[in-house]
Design a protein around this nucleic acid. Structure first.
Length: 422
DNA sequence: AACGCGTGGGA
DNA sequence: TTCCCAAGCGT
């Protein structure tokens, strides 16, 4: 395998893309003939018919070009689609749940969560009537917990406004919490057969290559072009399968790195393939450097239990349970950490010792949890810092909605022997 | 509209 | 082990 092309730039200014053939700024080295046979070969332009000028939002693709993508892609999907559990159901609620879980999350991660969650909350009505705490518990470890809060709120709206049945059009779905343009299009097309377009990261990459769409992720003109293409392409039979075929193609064949162009069902229609630009479209995304976040974490044992707190609903790990935590400066001495925890808990705690640090890399946060064993003269009351305080045994704590970071912290504390026999 | 929001898997 | 990465929704 040749060296990887850097597809993302951290902390660098975006490279302006000049949308004219021949003077496009190269952000990645071109794939050479020595590359793996699975990679896109550079090749002389065929005498093919796809347009040779980069696509602008005002330029509609030729109907023949759309047709040369639609048919082969659907045929390929019928032969190659993965057997995913949510493709075995027609229940709109189950399909909705899969789409929410799949936001930002890989298929293999979602599968067990989807099956477990659906058993626990089998209908929108069951979900709506469950306490948020239970819903977050079912979501624990999946990340982006606002998805669970919005899903819960949306289920309650579906019951209140639609009698427990999900509305069937993208326009109506868009009104519900947690439904953006993508999810509304996905549920409307897959569950209800509406010719509703969708664009996710896979579709954006596939279109960027097939139709040579220029521009960085987030560029308004680029987004408009992609949605216009999705809108034109989805019109016709089997809109749900067409949308899924686009995403499946992007996830398995038209991959970000080392796309399998020789296996691609639409390579003769692909402008980037014809021009040898597959490896440079779409351009890499610019990422912000993660900010450092350091929390002091109180490990307070009492009679076989530890003290837990429920976080505020907004922000990081919103609504989740944790060992009570307070933000501190990264270089803060333990005395300051003790003071912060005392203020958060509303009682003056004593420092009994340091138990170690748990580090977690989030997308936008470089998280450090500094565990401090504490004791106090009396039980803390509820304070403004937390929604609720509760003493829990390790077994009970395992059932609470908790972030993976805090689960690691709890594991570390228990390994350190803070509870006798634990 | 730029930024905040998690995690597991792969290099 | 450590670093890097995906990409929709809400504010």
């Amino acid at each position: 395998m040749t060296s990887r092309s850097p597809r993302s730039k951290r902390g660098m200014a975006p490279v302006h893309q000049v949308p004219l053939e021949g003077i496009v700024t190269k952000t990645r080295p071109a794939v050479t003939a020595a590359a793996s046979p699975d990679e896109a070969p550079t090749r002389k332009p065929r005498a093919g018919r796809p347009p040779s000028t980069p696509l602008a939002a005002t330029v509609a693709p030729a109907p023949e070009h759309l047709a040369s993508v639609r048919g082969p892609l659907l045929d390929w999907y019928d032969r190659n689609k993965r057997d995913l559990p949510w493709r075995r159901t027609k229940d709109p609620y189950a399909i909705w749940l899969s789409e929410v879980m799949l936001q930002q999350t890989q298929v293999s991660t979602v599968i067990p969560y989807w099956e477990r969650f659906l058993k626990r909350f089998p209908t929108a009505r069951a979900l709506a009537s469950a306490p948020l705490d239970d819903v977050l518990s079912g979501w624990k470890g999946l990340g982006y917990y606002s998805r669970a809060r919005n899903l819960h709120r949306a289920a309650q709206e579906v019951v209140a406004r639609f009698g427990g049945t999900l509305p069937s059009t993208a326009a109506e779905l868009l009104e519900l919490p947690g439904f953006g343009r993508y999810t509304a299009g996905a549920v409307a097309s897959i569950a209800f057969g509406e010719e509703a377009p969708l664009v996710d990261g896979n579709v954006a990459r596939v279109f960027s290559r097939i139709f040579e769409v220029e521009g960085l992720p987030g560029d308004r003109q680029r987004e408009a072009t992609l949605w216009a293409l999705a809108t034109a392409l989805v019109k016709g039979p089997r809109p749900g399968d067409l949308n899924q075929a686009l995403m499946e193609h992007g996830a398995t064949t038209c991959r970000p790195e080392n796309p399998l162009c020789l296996l691609c069902p639409v390579r003769t229609a692909c402008v980037a393939f014809r021009k040898g630009r597959v490896d440079e479209l779409p351009p890499a995304k610019v990422r912000a450097t993660p900010k450092k976040l350091t929390l002091a974490v109180a490990v307070w044992p009492h009679a076989g239990t530890l003290l837990f707190a429920r976080r505020a609903d907004a922000g990081l790990f919103g609504g989740l349970w944790e060992l009570p935590a307070a933000e501190i400066a990264d270089d803060a001495p333990d005395s300051e950490a003790r003071a912060r925890l005392s203020a958060a808990l509303g009682v003056d705690v004593s420092l009994e010792g340091a138990l170690g640090t748990v580090k977690r890399q989030l997308t936008h946060r470089d998280l450090s949890l500094r565990l401090l064993r504490v004791s106090g003269p009396r039980r803390p009351a509820s304070t403004p810092a937390f929604q609720e305080l509760r003493w829990c045994s390790p077994d009970d704590a395992g059932k609470l909605g908790m972030s993976t970071a805090m689960q690691r912290a709890l594991d570390l504390a228990l390994e350190a022997g803070v509870l006798p026999g634990g």
